[in-house]
């Protein structure tokens, strides 16, 4: 092969691999700088001045300023407990023991834009310590988060007072994070 063609191919392949790998490492699916709690992901050094460039890039590329982890712990997931990708064709049951954090929220976001569906500790209807929320495209009884027009559904769970939560330590390696089971699919 002609050396100039080899050069062009090498540069093209190198640049493509370099950029694709960089973009992948700043996604939530990246295993390198995220902490995994079951199917929940967390960027543990978000907002820290000494954070690594990958964590920094993950947030600022989207124009976001991450809250310091001592303020809020934010967890993301886009899979159910079986590891299957969330889809608006299915109904899911999210279940959790009422968090001890002073504030918390569950929201549902997607790539197609629009306001996220949100529930805070004030919105939850619950008779006891157990909190359940149904995620579905169609109306559901009790606590319901609507899944609609979401190309890539993603659940975000936020615990305020990150310092206190962190100090309490992981509970069974999960920090007491919600489970998310598929109930049915259309």
């Amino acid at each position: 092969m002609n050396p100039s063609v080899r050069f062009a191919v090498s540069v093209l392949v190198g640049v493509t691999v370099g950029i694709v790998s960089a973009r992948y490492m700043t996604t939530e699916q990246s295993p390198f700088f995220t902490e995994q709690y079951g199917n929940w992901n967390n960027w543990p050094v978000a907002g820290n001045p000494a954070n690594n460039p990958y964590t920094q890039a993950k947030f600022i590329a989207n124009g976001q300023l991450p809250e310091h982890f001592s303020e809020v712990l934010t967890f993301y997931r886009s899979q159910d407990d079986e590891g299957d990708k969330l889809t608006e064709d299915c109904t899911y049951l999210m279940s959790i023991n009422r968090p001890t954090a002073r504030r918390w929220s569950i929201s549902l976001t997607g790539n197609s834009g629009g306001s996220p569906q949100l529930m805070t500790q004030d919105d939850i209807i619950s008779m006891g310590d157990k909190v359940t929320v149904l995620l579905s495209a169609s109306p559901q009884p009790g606590n319901w988060l609507r899944m609609s027009n979401t190309d890539d559904p993603r659940v975000v769970f936020r615990l305020y007072d990150g310092d206190t939560i962190t100090a309490q330590g992981p509970t069974g390696g999960t920090l007491g994070l919600p489970s998310l089971t598929r109930v049915s699919c259309s």
């Binding site: 190198g14 640049v15 950029i19 790998s21 700043t26």
Partner: peptide, 26 residues
């Protein structure tokens, strides 16, 4: 040589992207 050149190009592109593109977007 070309394999090494490709790998080094990939590393350079990767680092340049991480260090410069997101800060510029921000």
């Amino acid at each position: 040589f070309w394999a090494l050149f490709t790998v080094l190009t990939a590393i350079a592109a990767h680092l340049c992207y991480i260090l410069f593109v997101p800060p510029q977007q921000f």
